Amino acid sequence: LISVIIPTWNSARFLPQALDSVFAQQYEPCEVIVVDDGSTDNTAVILGAYADRITCIRQANAGSASARNTGLQHARGEYVVFLDADDWLLPGKLHVQADFLNTHPEYGMAHSGWFLCDEAGNVLQIVEPWTEVPDLTLVNWLKHRPVNLGAFMFRREWLERVGGMDPSLRQSHDVDLVLRLALAGCQAGWVCLPTMAYRRHRKSTTLAGALQQARCSVAVIDRFFERPDLPPEVAEMATGTRYYSALWAAWYLLDKGLVEEVASYLQLCRSLSEKRPLPLVFDWLTHLVRWTERAGRPVEQVMAIVPVVAAVVPEVANGLWERFVGWWLARRPFLAADAFALA
């Protein structure tokens, strides 16, 4: 039995596609649990049309982590899939990931790729994380964090063993969950194909709550490294991981157009690094540009951060940032390395 848990909050517009994608899997046995987290739109009407095929639970708004925990408490399946109400499953997902876990009893998580789509459902990018992170070890979860909750299938016993989601986290509770699972010894393996579609739209939680997302992403990593039970090789990663977590938060805010909020995260990066100013800025540039490219954004948008960098690292001469971006667009980043005396 597979339990598909769908938390929803004011997502009536997209909910039918999510539900229909589960029923189109034609996997038996499967139960669908929808947790309405205090919706005020016509979600109840939508769910009423599926009343004979789903278990519907309503609760006061408490966040998606709480809603997922509520669903987990009612789940009976050996395997669990979490699907956001504005996303959808691709054909065959339940079959291929259940087959993987059936044939690999040593794994507690089956991970996969996904389609990144726009609001209308058009595919913007096919994400295949296994090309960069072939081995899903705790070290690699920390370094790369290739987490998209809907792309997983979990053994329910493992979710219950670690206590499910942390309801105090309104964002990044998926990363927190995977880190706790990996630390507890839960192994993960790849099903090397996309199994779900992730919709990026104006009203998505990660966009509306950008500031909260940035804060939570840093807080999850900080709290993880406060644990006393970390293996020595993991504990020694604390400074570097916190550095790149703060840098990612800076990029995330830049990507959402919140340039004025970036400075505090770059200042945190600087406090965590022993690099000299030029190598430090070169590292920032390299990662910000790469993350921008991977997100399918124009590299030129990185230019918006120039005044912030100038304020955080005033030792760096004016113009280097602009020249770097120009070289990157010309596919000649080695020239930037020369300019920063790093070649």
Score class of each variant (00 low, 15 high):
H74N: 13
C56P: 03
A235D: 00
T40I: 10
R155A: 00
V175G: 00
L19E: 04
W327M: 08
K203Q: 12
R227S: 02
Q25N: 03
A49L: 09
A250Q: 02
L15R: 06
V306C: 09
T195S: 02
P307V: 07
L149D: 03
I5N: 05
L181H: 02
L83W: 11
A60Q: 14
L83I: 06
L278F: 12
A238I: 01
L266W: 13
W328S: 11
K93P: 04
K93A: 15
A330Q: 15
A235R: 10
G121Q: 04
W9P: 03
N42R: 14
T70Y: 05
S66N: 12
E78Q: 13
L288S: 05
R223S: 06
T241D: 03
A235Y: 08
Q171W: 09
K256Y: 08
C117V: 09
R290W: 14
E236C: 14
M237E: 05
P314W: 11
G108K: 01
A44F: 08
Q171Y: 15
F340H: 10
R53N: 11
A98C: 07
V4A: 05
V309C: 15
D176N: 06
V220T: 00
H287Q: 14
F334L: 11
L94M: 13
L320H: 15
A12T: 04
M303L: 15
W88Q: 06
L116E: 15
N61L: 07
L19D: 03
H144K: 11
I305L: 13
T205D: 13
R76E: 14
N102H: 12
Q73G: 12
M153Y: 08
S11K: 13
Q187D: 07
M237Y: 11
Y244N: 05
P228D: 02
C269P: 01
V96G: 01
H173P: 04
N10V: 02
E226S: 02
F82V: 05
A304E: 14
L335K: 15
N69C: 04
L89Y: 10
D118C: 01
S168M: 08
V81K: 10
L83N: 04
D176H: 12
L272D: 00
E315I: 06
V45W: 09
E322C: 07
D52P: 05
R242S: 00
A208S: 11
C117A: 13
S112N: 00
V220W: 06
I6P: 04
E233N: 15
Q213K: 14
D222Y: 03
G185Y: 09
W88K: 04
Y50H: 06
I221C: 02
A304M: 10
F23Q: 04
L89C: 14
C30K: 10
V325Y: 09
